[in-house]
Every structure is written in structure tokens, then in C-alpha cells.
Design a binder for these strands. Structure first.
Lengths: 342, 342
DNA sequence: TGTTAGCACTCAACTAAGAGGAGTGCTAAT
DNA sequence: ATTAGCACTCCTCTTAGTTGAGTGCTAACA
């Protein structure tokens, strides 16, 4: 167990390093107001903290830098909850000022404001489209051999897909089809309709319409393809500001990672509420070994869920980001639940 | 006017610099097979070419580097058309292998392949949605006070927008409205329907439906808002490979520029056919002073147009990129005109 | 007269050596 | 238990010197 003094010193070191990105020396700590001991005492404690694995040196005679274990301890035990500036709150509120109706716009704007306020990179996941329920299904023929299938969901999301019509497909065939699909599928969630389409609906359709088989197949792939939730980015190039990312290769790897949907998805903890922090190599991705990721979720309506991630250096201002995410999560949840019926 | 020998030397220098990104010296040129003069002769010619503004030195005793004027001359007069590798052609063809129906997928894939083949950044503009014609108009109510308006265009593009319903709006009101809109707007291009909506349709609607005014207004903004063509990127981080972009700030500025839609739009030459090359400061953007942009357009169906841009360093492999763009343009145009009726 | 060999000169890039300074660990005094 | 003092480490910056690629110019050559 750490002594009180060790806690105090560890905290001071991490705070200082987060602020200045420079190895911190004993003198610098002892100069702080809240610290009353001499540099020598601090050096002794530092040596102990290093032995315990909370601190590291960059070379024999350098100041100390928090290790990953040090950050982890800091985050778990030394992170006094902090209120945020009223100016920041105001700026967050401004997202909801213009009475935007569409979920997408609000989320996009949130991503930008979050990256601005934190000066890190933000990633916001929109609602999981798979959980939306079908409100209306329709097909618009474009020519003799092509048509667009459109699914409108209860949240106002519109999913659409072109497909080719089998030859000799008549308008009345199409109409029948649409009717059957609407009868059977309205109210189902998108993730369920795959099964339903193949299981029930296919047989029914085959009774009424020729060559429905092909059609259903393309419909299934259509609804499956766009399955991932939409992703919004803010401040993609913000890490260029961080001194630890003055290395082109690191930045590149992270930017590339952010273009890969599967990688981005795996940054999040789906279905876990609260705020999660992953520090350095706690991230599964090698590219992120110098980054920390703070994630949380927010609700959209009754059933839907979105997620937020902030990506910064391990030397991230955890206190501030956590506070901001907390406000953001609540505001988004509130905005999306009030005034939103089914 | 330049002598034959000067042309030959200028070409050799530009080619060499494009290849190795190093100032090129007289010796290096004279070693080339096609060059028969001694280094001393070349030095004399180089001095002349420098005086004429086609070459520059990085310092008094360095080799020569092409100036912007040099590149311009090279591009205008020394760019012998070049066939491309059959392997490259094959890779481009692979875009069209899987019988993708949707324009969007083909373009997305094209962006990736182009950036891969060039190792620069590619930007592809999809069809200009404004020129699409309305195929069907429909409205799907979500709740008592919200609905989604959907416009399907002749190309299978689907534009949609949520809006709030005025109170006391009945289902039959909605139906009337949709009918009127379809009667009046089908066949019009999206850019025309703004005017039409406000001019003709509004008055007709007002006769049949109460509080149509608000509705039309949100409809107008809906169709206007999403007006820009979709943009697809390939190889956003490819410039990290180029030695001239080892400067973080340059890269950052360009990446930021690419996030700004208006800036991206202004990279293109709309409505001009052929291949256009802008070198360094010929670009309007300050951020692009070290870049060259090569653009061209392709047709989508009879009326639509898309555009392609490749962004690289001024020391770009113009020959190859021009050749690739030419193939790409033709292949895309072909893919989008055959099998596509109205 | 056009071309080329030779040579002095320039300057970036690298290496080596030394000074300065921030910081440590240890010891001894308080 | 704390801290002042001091020797020591090692990064960082500066300076000086060396190397080598490349130039411009002049004079010789075909």
C-alpha cells in the first residue's frame, strides 16, 4: 500500500507530466504549493515509486515519467471528479440550440465540439441500425430491369439498395411483393429480417411471384451490407499537436487504423455503461500503444445505443476528458429521449 | 526556344528528380544511356536552363531541381503518352468484376485502387445529385408529429430527410400532398425542384392542405442541404511516404483541407473534359503549394458527371498518373453508360 | 566554334570534442 | 525521519574540422 505522501507525489508527477510532457524532477515537484517536503525527500519517494513500477526514467539522470501502471493507478485512485468550466458547458449546449431534428446532425456536431474541447480525436458511433424496426418497405422500379428497395425504420433512418429485376417481372408482381413484405416485416428489427426473409417470406413469395428467389437473395445482402453503425470523426489531425506524435509513422498508423471500420469498432465496449479507459498497451491494437482511449455510451430513444470514444496520448488529460464525456453522454441521452416517440 | 539538347536534358532532370527526389547533378545525367555529352556540357546547359527559369538550385553548389515552370514545361511538352502495365490494367478491371450494381460501390473501389496504383491520394466525386431527376416522391409518417420525405431519382439515388409534421395533419392530407408532389415533380431535376416547389407547387398545395407552407419550407431545405456530390477518398495517408512531406505541418494542412468540403470541391474543374494538371502554386489553396493535382471527369449515364483528382507532390509521376487516369476515366464512363437505361 | 578536361571553390552533412545544466543517488548532518 | 551537500550521469547544445558531391570558369582540344 502506498503512503499518503507517495500518493500525493505520484499525483503531482502525473499531473505535471500531463501538463508539460516533460520528465518531472524532484525540484519541480517540491516547488508546488501543495508539496511541503524537500527535493531530497521526494527523490527518495520517487525511487520507491519507481521500484513499485509506477514511474520510469528516460535515462539514468533524468526526471520521472509515469509508467502505464502509474497512469492506471492515477486513473483508478487519484482522479478526483472535476466540474467543468461553464464556458465548456455552454459550448456543448450549443449543439442542441438549432433544434436539429436529425440524429445524424447532432452526432456529427457533437464529434466536432468534443474534439475541439479536448483537442484530441473523437469518434462517435451513431445508433446501431440493426436494432431499428422496419416502418415501411417499398420498391421503386427504375427501368425494366432495375429497381431500388427502400426500408424506412422507426427512427427515420432510410436504408436503400439497388438490385436488378428478373426479366418478365411485371408491375403487379412488384406490388404483390411489396405488400407481402410489408405485411410480414413491418415492426421487425433489421437484424431479424434476414432470418425472416429467408425462412418465412421466401416461401410465401414463391407462391405468388416467379423467380423471387434471386430477388430475396439480393435483398438479404442489401440489408446485411450496411449493417455497421455510422461513424463520425472529429479532429482527426488533432494528435499532430501532441509532442509525442511528432513521429510521422505513429500518426500514420493511427490515421490508417481509423479508416478501418473493423478496427474502429473494436475500440468500443458495446453494452457496457459508464466510462471506460484503456491505457497504452491495454488497447488490443499495436498501433495504439502510445494512446489512451476513453469510451462511453449514450442512449438514443428507448432501445438504441450510441458510443463515444476519445483518442489521445497516454499522457492525456484524463480528468478533463472524463468530465466532458460525462456531460456529453447525459446531454445526448437527454436530447434523444425527450420528444421522441415511436 | 529551347534547343533539342536542352529539351533532352530538362526531361532527363525532371524524370530523374521524380524518381529519386534528390537534386540531380551533371554527372548523374551524363551517365544515362540516352545522354552522350559530358558533364561539363550539361553544366553549361543547366546554367542556361536555370537562367530561363526551368531549374533551381537548393544552394550554390547543389544539383538542380525542377522549378514549377520546369514542371509546367515538362507536362506541356515533354510528356510522351505512355501505355500502362498490363498488370495495372488488370487491377483496374477488377473493379468491375463483381458485377456491382451500385454506382457508389464502384466509385469507392475505384478510389482505393487508384490510390494504390499511384501511391498518391485520390479523390473521386460521385454523380452530381442535383442533376438527377425525380423518379418517385414519397412520405412515410413515423409518429403523429414526424415523418420522412424520400426522393428516389432516376439513377437509383435515394435522398431522404426527416421533418416535423404540423399538428392536426391527417393521413389523407399527407396522401393528397404526396400525389400532388408526384404529379408535379416527377421528371424534374433536383436542382429545378427548389424553384418549382416554391413557385407552383406551394400554391396548389395550399388549396388542398392546411399549413403546407411550413412543410414546403422544410422540404426545400431538405433537398438543398445534401446538394453536394458525394466524395470518396483513397489513400489519405499515402503522402506520408513522400519525402517532401516528412514535415508534419504540411501533411496536417493537406489532411485538414481534405476534410473541408468546399475546399475539396474547388480542386476540381467542373464541366471541362480532358485531363487537367495544376502544379504547386497554380492551385488556389496555399496549403497545396507543394502539391500537384491532376483531375479529370467521367460520365455517369447520359447526363451525369463525376470527377477524379489525384493529389501528390509537385514531384509527381505525371506520366503514369495521366495514363492511369485516362484508363480509369474511360472504364468508368463505359461501365456507367452500358446497361443503364432511364 | 562547340565540346570537354581540369581545377578551385562552395556548402550541406557528418563526426568529434567539449561545455553546460538538469537531475539523480548517496552520505552525513540536523 | 528529513534534508543539505556533493559527486556523478547523461542529454543537449555549440564549435570546429573533415568529407564529398556538385558547381562555375578557364583553357585546351577537335
Amino acid at each position: 500500500m502506498l503512503t499518503n505522501r507517495q500518493l500525493q507525489i505520484l499525483q503531482a508527477i502525473v499531473d505535471d507530466f500531463i501538463m508539460f510532457a516533460q520528465p518531472v524532477g524532484s525540484r519541480q515537484i517540491s516547488n508546488k504549493q501543495e508539496i511541503t517536503f524537500s527535493p531530497a525527500t521526494i527523490r527518495n519517494e520517487m525511487a520507491d515509486l519507481e521500484e513499485l513500477g509506477f514511474l520510469e526514467k528516460t535515462h539514468t539522470s533524468s526526471g520521472r515519467v509515469p509508467s502505464e501502471k502509474g497512469y492506471r493507478f492515477y486513473v483508478d485512485h487519484l482522479l478526483s471528479p472535476q466540474g467543468i468550466n461553464s464556458r465548456d458547458i455552454q459550448q456543448i449546449q450549443s449543439i442542441f440550440n438549432d433544434r436539429l431534428v436529425e440524429v445524424e446532425h447532432i452526432i456529427r456536431k457533437s464529434a466536432n465540439i468534443l474534439s475541439e474541447l479536448t483537442s484530441y480525436t473523437s469518434i462517435l458511433l451513431g445508433p446501431d441500425v440493426q436494432r431499428h424496426r422496419v416502418k415501411r418497405f417499398s420498391i421503386v422500379p427504375l427501368s425494366s430491369d432495375a429497381a431500388v428497395a427502400i426500408i424506412v425504420t422507426n427512427n427515420g433512418h432510410v436504408e436503400n439498395r439497388m438490385f436488378s429485376l428478373p426479366p418478365n417481372f411485371t408491375a403487379s408482381d412488384l406490388e404483390k411483393m411489396v405488400n407481402i413484405l410489408n405485411e410480414r416485416l413491418v415492426g421487425e428489427s433489421l437484424e431479424d429480417i434476414h432470418k425472416k426473409l429467408e425462412a418465412e417470406v421466401l416461401t410465401v413469395l414463391q407462391q405468388h411471384v416467379q423467380s423471387a428467389d434471386d430477388f430475396i437473395r439480393s435483398l438479404v445482402t442489401a440489408t446485411m451490407h450496411n449493417s455497421e453503425s455510422k461513424v463520425f470523426y472529429g479532429g482527426k489531425t488533432n494528435m499532430f499537436n501532441q509532442p509525442e506524435f511528432h513521429d510521422l509513422n505513429k500518426v500514420r498508423m493511427i490515421l490508417d487504423l481509423m479508416e478501418t471500420t473493423s478496427q474502429v469498432q473494436s475500440l468500443f465496449h458495446p453494452n457496457e455503461s459508464g466510462i471506460h479507459i484503456r491505457i497504452g498497451s491495454e488497447n488490443k491494437q499495436l498501433e495504439m500503444e502510445n494512446c489512451s482511449v476513453i469510451t462511453t455510451t449514450y442512449s438514443i430513444g428507448e432501445e438504441q445505443q450510441g458510443a463515444i470514444a476519445i483518442i489521445g496520448p497516454t499522457r492525456m488529460d484524463y480528468k478533463r476528458v472524463v468530465a466532458l464525456l460525462d456531460v456529453m453522454r447525459m446531454d445526448l441521452t437527454q436530447a434523444f429521449t425527450k420528444n421522441r416517440s415511436d
